[in-house]
């Protein structure tokens, strides 16, 4: 078994392409592992915080269509058409997006949960739980109590999560992620950094992710030969 390939992923929760990109990456990584067979290296994933709209209020009284039409000054019908298109892409990727029930909110507490979960070895589970809650289940991911409920569902201590989020225990870690992302020149998410050397931007096709992993692995093996 080779040394693992490290994937650092910058993304937000309120980011439809991040969830789609997550699925496509997972599919691509599985295809890479299958092709590489017994010699396949582990792929280690770490999520990093990126707030697309940090000025978003925690509680927005309205639908996603209301939010976008208000903030972008676009007709509601046009916004609905856009969201239908995105939901169609999600469906083709195996994801069920429900923009009718989505609760638009600020994601900084959700990002802090991701850092909390990382210290407990559950960051990947927390990321998936938050994305599914937001895009599929219409759950609130901005309020401390609601985020703690989701944390408890993946086995984290609800009371300790409330303590941590209330104290902004991991806010510095969120800001450090954002600073590193800025240093990398990341302007959009999802953004994947591989072994600290390669960057992959956006929700690429699964086949592309598989090819990139194969390229990185092949180059590394050649360098060690």
């Amino acid at each position: 078994m080779s040394e693992s390939i490290k994937i650092d992923i910058w993304s937000d929760i309120a980011c439809p392409w991040c969830y789609i990109g997550k699925r496509k990456f997972e599919t691509g990584a599985a295809a890479f592992a299958e092709k590489a067979g017994a010699d396949a290296p582990d792929v280690t994933i770490e999520y990093h915080s990126y707030e697309l709209a940090p000025d978003t209020p925690v509680d927005f009284d309205g639908s996603e269509i209301d939010f976008l039409s208000t903030h972008k000054g676009m007709p509601a019908d046009q916004v609905k058409g856009m969201l239908d298109n995105v939901a169609g892409i999600a469906r083709a990727t195996g994801l069920d997006y429900n923009f009718d029930t989505l609760k638009h909110t600020n994601t900084v507490k959700a990002h802090q949960l991701l850092h909390y979960a990382k210290t407990h070895g559950k960051q990947v589970e927390a990321k998936e739980r938050l994305l599914k809650a937001y895009f599929t289940e219409g759950r609130h991911v901005g309020r401390i109590e609601d985020v703690a409920d989701l944390a408890a569902e993946i086995g984290l201590d609800r009371d300790d999560v409330i303590r941590s989020l209330s104290a902004d225990e991991h806010l510095d870690a969120v800001r450090a992620d954002q600073a590193l992302g800025q240093a990398y020149g990341i302007q959009g998410v999802p953004f994947f950094v591989i072994d600290g050397k390669y960057g992959v931007s956006g929700a690429q096709e699964a086949e592309t992710f598989a090819q990139v992993l194969d390229q990185v692995w092949t180059e590394r093996e050649a360098a060690h030969a």
């Binding site: 439809p16 976008l68 916004v79 298109n85 959009g188 998410v189 390669y198 690429q204």
Partner: peptide, 18 residues
């Protein structure tokens, strides 16, 4: 960083995701 993959993959920038 050395950029790999397609250059036109969709992503979110600001709040302009959709």
């Amino acid at each position: 960083l050395t950029l790999l993959g397609a250059t036109d993959a969709v992503s979110c920038e600001g709040d302009t995701c959709v």
